[in-house]
């Protein structure tokens, strides 16, 4: 990759990061919020993006790597435009989450870590989302869909494929 293709934060982002860093006792505390910004701007955290974050916060790459690899919400691989995360922990399991997850995988024709051919979807099984009254819970790009059913998820998938807002 040539230098011109390396990921680069916009000037607005850099100003935002400057302001953010001042609100913590040390710049290192800003690492997680800055990783979220990078993920939002570049889709996922490639090694080049992680290096850029390290440079911006004046950290070593390894300090960034330690954090990226520890937390499940930081993604090192690209995923579909819509990431469907199905909670299958106890309360969701007791309310049919396993069958829902299986059905969704079948509808999409993919498993975890894969992307549908149209680039629209990825699916993952996740741990307790902290919304157990709405079990089973599916997060769609971090938006909670509670009391999800195979039908409601199929309707959502159909809408996305038709280019409609969800």
């Amino acid at each position: 990759m040539s230098a011109s293709e390396m990921p680069k934060f916009s000037e607005e982002r850099l100003a935002e990061i400057d302001a953010l860093v001042k609100r913590y006792p040390s710049a290192k505390s800003a690492l997680m919020p800055v990783l979220y910004m990078a993920q939002q701007d570049f889709g996922y955290l490639s090694m080049d993006t992680q290096q850029m974050v390290a440079d911006v916060l004046k950290l070593r790459l390894m300090e960034v790597r330690e954090v990226v690899t520890f937390y499940t919400m930081f993604k090192e691989q690209p995923h579909g435009k819509y990431l469907l995360e199905v909670c299958t922990n106890a309360s969701c399991m007791l309310n049919g989450a396993d069958a829902l997850y299986a059905q969704m995988k079948e509808t999409l024709g993919i498993g975890p870590g894969e992307i549908t051919e149209d680039g629209l979807f990825s699916i993952a099984e996740v741990e307790c989302a902290g919304a157990c009254a709405g079990a089973p819970v599916v997060q769609v790009n971090n938006i909670y869909h509670e009391k999800a059913t195979a039908e409601s998820m199929e309707a959502l998938i159909t809408k996305v494929r038709a280019g409609e807002a969800i």
């Binding site: 040390s26 505390s29 690492l31 997680m32 300090e63 330690e66 954090v67 937390y71 499940t72 930081f74």
Partner: peptide
């Protein structure tokens, strides 16, 4: 960012310091 252990108070502090 998705780590149950950060609910433990000293892990939370580590996390807020920008570490695992």
């Amino acid at each position: 960012a998705g780590a149950y252990i950060c609910g433990e108070e000293t892990a939370l502090i580590e996390s807020l310091e920008g570490k695992s």
